[in-house]
């Protein structure tokens, strides 16, 4: 008898907890991508998020005087999660592109860095599309780099494998399952400087820019109707730039001079 009663109470308790779990409300909810993307954001061995963008986020929230909470979601679902109101703004090295602007809006650019192609250590630095005929690219799904490969290298005969996270693409480059990885230059340089990267791979070159595909820098993704939030975030981004906070953060992560930062205005 006691068993049945406990059984019923536990079930009711579980249902109540599920209902209550939806109640918490914070000032601004920031959506992060739940993958390691060093040096911008990754979880260290103590379980805390660290990186350039994490410092940027904290500085930004302090500047606005808002309390920010974070929510993680996998990269390929981050735009749907924003439109489904799971959070209010994306900080996940997301480039501002015309294609994405059809679905969501962006703040002004807060940093920009060029794309890069890396490959195995063989000294072959040819990155012309014709050279990639029959070669396989590894790339993270739903990225500007994936779109770039589709536009320039696939028609020339390259094959593409898409991964949920960039580290998986890098792991397959090290394993030899793909011949090249294309991604953001700063994350790829960080990888090349690591033990795993040093052992397998080298820089192949910067592909020619295409603003239509690669976008005009990284901004915070927000919903189209949140114009007030956009104003507020933009003001804070430019204020951080004017104060030199952005440069400080870049220095801390050894990225000073390697990335273009937001303008003071």
């Amino acid at each position: 008898m006691t068993l049945t009663r406990r059984f019923v109470m536990a079930a009711a308790g579980a249902a109540a907890m599920v209902m209550a779990a939806g109640a918490a409300q914070a000032d601004i909810k920031i959506g992060l991508s739940s993958e390691p993307y060093p040096p911008f954001s990754s979880k260290d061995a103590s379980g805390t998020w660290v990186g350039w963008e994490i410092d940027f986020m904290n500085a930004l929230c302090a500047e606005m005087g808002e309390k920010c909470t974070t929510e993680e979601v996998s990269w390929d679902g981050i735009i749907p999660a924003l439109t489904a109101k799971k959070f209010d703004a994306i900080i996940a090295s997301m480039s501002i592109t015309p294609e994405r602007k059809k679905t969501i809006d962006f703040t002004d650019m807060y940093y920009n860095s060029p794309a890069l192609i890396i490959g195995p250590k063989d000294g072959d630095k040819d990155i012309s599309p014709e050279h990639f005929k029959g070669k396989t690219f590894g790339v993270q799904v739903s990225t500007i780099h994936s779109n770039y490969i589709d536009k320039y290298f696939k028609p020339a005969g390259a094959e593409v494998k898409t991964y949920g996270t960039e580290d998986e693409a890098k792991a397959d480059l090290a394993a030899g399952r793909v011949d090249y990885v294309m991604g953001d230059s700063l994350t790829l340089f960080t990888y090349l400087a690591s033990d795993a990267g040093k052992a397998c791979c080298e820089e192949k070159g910067f592909p020619p820019d295409d603003k239509e595909i690669l976008g005009e820098g990284v901004g915070m993704g927000i919903r189209k109707e949140d114009t007030a939030l956009k104003e507020k975030l933009n003001k804070a981004i430019h204020a951080l730039s004017a104060k030199g906070t952005l440069t400080e953060i870049s220095k801390k992560w050894g990225l000073d001079g390697q990335m273009k930062l937001a303008s003071p205005q």
Partner: peptide, 17 residues
């Protein structure tokens, strides 16, 4: 990286949101 039904869906989601 297998392009099964789910992989195709993921591709459509990437292209069309």
């Amino acid at each position: 990286t297998v392009m099964d039904l789910m992989g195709a869906t993921s591709m459509i989601r990437q292209d069309t949101y």
